[in-house]
Write a protein that binds this DNA or RNA. Structure first.
Length: 312
DNA sequence: CTCCAGGTGGCGA
DNA sequence: TCGCCACATGGA
């Protein structure tokens, strides 16, 4: 049994750019009458098609996800409650007019509220390698350790693999898991340890989802785990814990801070101390409460417009 | 061949 | 605290 819904939004939403801008590595593209994007959310198979700039079609294998009806869950997933323009201060509109005009095409990208555990593991796989490779590694991970699920759509069987549970990853030999971490055994070991910590409750992601926790404290807590530094911690916070104030700084962010915002700090190698400096700098021209939201828009814009990179 | 890709941690000064 | 290096592979 499939449940089919249409969801309308008050503002433009770009589903493809949102799902494939490098915040999730768990979506597939299927081509039928137009493109369907497929994944598994909370154990439920979800297919999404963009109908118009403000409407999407959702096909789901269940009418409830984590206790929410589909429309409510998807609206929350795409953070339609957030006004992107409020993440950027007026300073950008008036002082960086060229950038402001290019950014117009990126305001329909939404930052996703994803599963914290899945975000934690996928971003631990994403260190110092290209997005194409990250996507492939995560795909291998789900194929080997995930659960196979399928539905039939338009008379054709669609096969997907769920994300492996913490318990499943806990028992994997790091040497074997390294097939999913670019053969890097250290990272594979760290991922197994993190999965164990989640399974044991030593990493309590539900508790960390409390928005009252100060960002620095959240980051430091996550960083106590091997393989998680400031950047990965901020990614987990931003994409997995709905902390849109978290501002992950990677090689691309460093580049646009230097080029677009004339940061001299960003010209030098990124040490932990400079990471915190850049974080503070960025909050002077971004809305601190939505710094990471703005950062993701800028990040994607930089990669596409300047670096001419593809995210998939 | 060289350089870079959504980094982290260990080391010596 | 800072600079340098290993980790590992693939694509431009």
């Amino acid at each position: 049994m499939l449940y089919k819904n249409f969801i309308s939004f008050d503002n433009n939403i770009d589903v493809r750019e949102s799902l494939f801008s490098g915040q999730s590595f768990l979506w597939n593209t299927l081509d039928y009458n137009g493109s369907y994007y497929a994944s598994i959310l909370g154990g439920v198979i979800i297919l999404i098609r963009q109908v118009s700039c403000r409407e999407i079609e959702v096909i789901a294998s269940d009418n409830l996800i984590n206790g929410y009806v589909i429309n409510d869950f998807i609206s929350q997933y795409f953070s339609i409650d957030v006004d992107i323009k409020s993440s950027l201060t007026d300073c950008i509109e008036y002082r960086y007019t060229g950038l402001w005009s290019v950014l117009q095409g990126y305001f329909s990208i939404k930052v996703l509220r994803q599963n914290p555990y899945e975000t934690l593991i996928t971003f631990m796989c994403a260190q110092g390698i290209g997005m194409h490779l990250i996507r492939r590694q995560v795909s291998i991970l789900t194929h080997i350790y995930g659960e196979k699920k399928s539905i039939t759509l338009f008379g054709k069987e669609i096969i997907l693999h769920s994300f492996p549970t913490p318990e499943r990853l806990s028992s994997v030999d790091p040497l074997v898991l390294s097939a999913c971490t670019n053969n890097n055994r250290i990272r594979a070991t760290n991922i197994v340890l993190a999965a164990q910590a989640v399974a044991d409750g030593k990493i309590d992601l539900q508790a960390l989802a409390n928005p009252a926790i100060p960002l620095a404290e959240l980051r430091n807590t996550l960083c106590r785990n091997r393989g998680i530094g400031y950047k990965i911690a901020d990614c987990i916070a931003l994409f997995g814990l709905g902390r849109f104030d978290a501002f992950p700084i990677d090689t691309h962010v460093q580049q646009y801070l230097a080029t677009w915002f004339n940061s001299t700090t960003a010209l030098r190698p990124l040490t932990p101390a400079r990471y915190l400096l850049l974080d503070a700098e960025a909050r002077t021209f971004l809305n601190p409460e939505l710094a990471g939201y703005a950062g993701h828009i800028l990040f994607h814009c930089w990669r596409k417009e300047v670096k001419k990179l593809r995210s998939f």
